[in-house]
Amino acid sequence: MPTGLVALLDDVAAIARLAAASVDDIAAASMKASSKAFGVVVDDAAVTPKYVSGLTPARELPIIWRIAKGSLRNKLLFLLPAALLLSAFLPWAITPILMLGGLYLSYEGAEKILGALLGHGHAATDETETSETAEEIENRKVGGAIRTDLILSGEIMAIALSEVADRSIGTQAAALIAVSLLITGGVYGVVGLIVKMDDIGLHLARRSGGVLPAVGRGLVKGMPVVLAVLAKIGTAAMLWVGGGILIHGLEEFHLETIPHAAEAVGDAIAGLMPFAPGLGAWLGFAVASALVGLMVGGVLALLVPPLSRMFGKKA
């Protein structure tokens, strides 16, 4: 099967295989893991900036720091022990858990698209925000970000665990800790830079002479566009990642129809790009993964609201 999004499951093998020997090997494995978990990481980076929107600029970085600490706590205190216990006692459950995560990501991505098309987003009402103090709003947003991070972090940890389940507990722990530190630092470092980029632009715009003021004005004007594009990339990444995980899971259970169809799409695109067949295969499989994620997630997005109302009324 072609590489690409499947690297989220296949190429993350490098995490523990390289992590077994030394600290240098662990660092190399973690770097590879973060690059291969591109879809989940991009979605995390795309989602997080909304949690500081509308708040005082002076509180932006402290809030990001609080979310980053919560993310690391999720990974090291909850997900890491759970992953090690799972590997020790229920290794067969790793693939089904990954597929549940794939369903969730597909649902989230499709739900965002349906929300945009049908015009019912998730914006908070003014009444909710005006009835809360600034501290309460901040705590609510931080709590929401940490809960969202728990799902995405769980998916990353499960992906890593699926490739180190046959190694010793020490190797598994070292690899998962390294991945946790690297991805958390990378994601929230980038998020912090994103949310402060407009402030950097304002600072540069106030400089006199040279090209810096023009650069600053460009940053101020361009950041809303960057954030909008990042949000769209995050939605696409959810479908891409979710669909790829589902395809790989079906392959693990020897249900080959959809995996073979996705591979055929990759081969077809590769045939149209004789100058770069590897890139064509990757692109084709990525598109097929996103389509699978969109179809499965779309069905879930249509079913979840009525089911929620039904069970809510019964409760």
Rank of each mutant, 00 (worst) to 15 (best):
V6F: 12
V187K: 04
Y104K: 03
L272N: 07
D198M: 08
V142M: 03
V215M: 09
D10S: 13
S34D: 00
D11N: 13
P62I: 07
F253P: 00
G185D: 01
L307M: 10
G266M: 07
G201Q: 00
L204V: 05
A315T: 12
S34T: 13
G185K: 02
A290P: 04
V190S: 09
V23I: 09
H120P: 00
Y51S: 09
A13T: 11
V42S: 09
K50P: 00
A262T: 08
I94E: 02
A124Q: 13
S289V: 07
R140Y: 04
V226P: 00
H203A: 14
G271Y: 05
T133I: 03
M197G: 09
E163P: 02
S106D: 08
A158L: 15
L80C: 06
A268S: 14
D267C: 00
A270R: 01
M273G: 01
A228S: 12
I177S: 04
V42P: 04
A290T: 12
G209S: 07
V229Y: 04
K141S: 11
A262R: 05
S106E: 06
A13E: 11
F253N: 06
G244E: 02
T125M: 09
G243D: 06
V6G: 11
K313G: 00
H120K: 14
K36D: 13
L272R: 12
K75S: 13
D149R: 08
A83V: 01
G298W: 06
G109I: 02
A174G: 06
T148V: 12
E263D: 15
S87D: 08
L18T: 04
M31G: 14
K141V: 00
L230S: 03
I94P: 02
Y104L: 14
G192V: 05
R309N: 11
R207A: 10
E135D: 15
G209W: 07
R147S: 11
V296L: 10
P213N: 05
K32Y: 06
P91C: 10
L250K: 04
F275K: 11
E252H: 13
R309Q: 14
W282E: 12
